[in-house]
Design a protein around this nucleic acid. Structure first.
Lengths: 127, 127
DNA sequence: GTAACACCTAGAGTTAACTCCAAGTCAACA
DNA sequence: TGTTGACTTGGAGTTAACTCTAGGTGTTAC
């Protein structure tokens, strides 16, 4: 698979993929005779996982750390598990913030929609 | 209320509050005779709302835009409503990404925990 | 054979959102 | 009265995560 196809599949730029390889978010990608990246199934799986985690705000250095541990083999299984649990904790917390904002937005949007109809904007809470 | 108390209440830095005032995320705060900010109830409400929205990734310039519209009075009600709907759309999308990552994390953590017990790491999916 | 195109590298530049710094003011206390 | 500590300002610096640029190579289309 070429870089272009990967870009299209995951909707990220070629620069981003090259950057991810450079810093170690994804493994080194094999090149063909003329130096062009040829992505294997396994490469694609890494990209899929890492872009998924990035999409939930997991920082680059945490992803790099995870991959490093992975490279070190089975003796890092519990370390990887702990890392992922920490990531999960962060994500759950983030989602709670998002939910709070969503509740507030829904409340405000409702009030604004009432106001559009009635011409009266009434906040029964400051939420 | 002093800046220190506001910091403690919302767990943000004084620099951030001053920055928010400077760029227009929150209204100009009244000063006492010696130039020190005195936060009113209404100021606090703004800070509460804006930090809530920021906590869900809503960008600064969108918050500034919202406040600008608010300052302009009732004729911007529908514009504010649209802005908040767009923000909500973004947040809902973000939450979906977060949920996907969370599912993947849960799957991986389960496999890793099995592996810690059995010594066997078995991925039945590449998710 | 040459033009267009997709790719490569190294390294510099950009952006958002803070965060820090220097220099100064003011109130309260020893 | 002087020093401590919380605050002020304008402006510079930082950080993460890309994103862009310049200069180059290899493959395909006419």
């Amino acid at each position: 698979m070429t870089i272009k196809e990967v870009c299209e599949q995951f909707n990220i730029s070629a620069d981003t993929i090259r950057y991810y390889e450079r810093v170690g978010v994804i493994p080194p990608i094999n090149r063909n005779a003329s130096g062009i990246r040829q992505f294997t199934e396994e490469n694609i799986n890494w990209i899929q996982t890492m872009t998924c985690f990035r999409g939930a705000g997991m920082p680059i250095d945490m992803l790099v750390e995870y991959r490093k541990l992975f490279e070190m083999g089975d003796e890092t299984i519990s370390a990887r598990c702990e890392l992922l649990k920490e990531a999960r904790k962060n994500i759950v917390e983030e989602m709670q913030s998002y939910q709070k904002a969503l509740d507030k937005l829904n409340y405000k949007i409702e009030r604004y929609e009432e106001a559009c109809v009635t011409g009266q904007l009434i906040w029964t809470e400051t939420k």
